[in-house]
Simulated scan of single mutants.
Amino acid sequence: MAKDLTCQDKIDMQALEKRHKELEKAWNDLLKEKREVEARIHTLEQQEKQFEMKWEMLIRETQQLADDKKQFERKKKFYDHVQANNAQQEYGVTTSDNIVHGEMFFSGVSTQKALKKRYKDLIKIYHPDGDAGDTATVAEINREYEDLKSQMN
């Protein structure tokens, strides 16, 4: 008779089975929610990496834009100065500051080899024995060349 289950035991057993199914469903729901949260975390991590890459690119491009602007302004200043000198020579006007400053001549030069080539080309143009020759401008070119050469070493 010990093996025979009473009606109350059967009810208790059914309640336990029902409770077990509820707990199993709750467990599966939690596991599903955990996977969804992990997927969202992974997505956010990927978005954060993309944002960092875009941010770094934006910083580099902004710096490049600033450098390009600076170089453009130097070139513009140089060309304005050259045009002013040409206009002065055309009309026979002379000024006391007829020197083109050296940094204008070497704008955009970033390597030792390019610096040396630019220097040689400038000396050919502005040597005092030439048509466009000017001792003060050559002195300025020499000064700036030496400064840049020492900075690049």
Rank of each mutant, 00 (worst) to 15 (best):
A136H: 09
Q112M: 11
H81D: 12
A132M: 07
Y91M: 14
K10R: 12
A26Q: 14
T62M: 14
T43A: 11
K76E: 09
D129F: 08
H101M: 12
N85S: 15
D80A: 00
Q8D: 00
D4P: 06
K3V: 13
R60G: 11
K77W: 01
T94L: 06
Q88M: 09
T137C: 13
S110P: 12
A15N: 04
K70C: 05
E90F: 13
A2Y: 06
L23Y: 14
S150M: 10
T135Q: 12
D80I: 10
E52M: 12
A15P: 10
K10G: 07
A84K: 04
A132G: 06
Q112D: 06
L23H: 12
Y126W: 03
E22K: 03
E22P: 13
L23I: 05
W27I: 08
K75S: 02
Q83S: 03
T95K: 00
D9S: 09
K77T: 08
A15C: 08
T94E: 14
Q71I: 06
E24W: 09
R19M: 01
A87Y: 14
K75V: 04
I99S: 05
V100C: 13
Q64V: 05
M57A: 14
D129Y: 03
Q112R: 11
K124S: 12
D29K: 05
Q63C: 06
K113V: 03
S110M: 03
L148Y: 07
A15D: 07
E24V: 05
K113N: 07
G108E: 08
D9F: 07
L44G: 15
V138E: 01
K54M: 07
F106N: 02
G92N: 13
E33C: 03
T95P: 08
Y145E: 06
R35S: 06
L44S: 03
D131K: 12
K124I: 04
K70W: 08
Y126F: 01
H20K: 15
T43D: 12
Y145Q: 01
G102K: 00
D147Q: 02
T62Q: 07
E22N: 01
K124H: 12
L58I: 11
D9Y: 00
A87C: 13
N28R: 14
Y91A: 15
A136V: 04
L122Q: 00
E73H: 04
P128Q: 00
D29V: 00
K124Q: 07
E61S: 09
M152A: 04
N142T: 08
K32R: 10
H81T: 06
L23P: 13
N98R: 15
Q46K: 14
A136G: 10
M13S: 06
L148Q: 01
I125Q: 04
A66N: 06
R60P: 04
Q14N: 11
L16K: 09
Q50H: 15
D29G: 08
F105R: 05
A66V: 00
K49V: 01
G130N: 12
E61Q: 09
G130A: 15
V82I: 10
S150G: 05
M53R: 15
D9V: 10
L115P: 06
Q83D: 15
K77L: 01
L30E: 02
L58T: 09
W27D: 12
Q89D: 15
V37C: 03
Q14M: 02
E144N: 04
E48D: 14
R19I: 07
F105D: 07
N85Q: 04
K3Y: 09
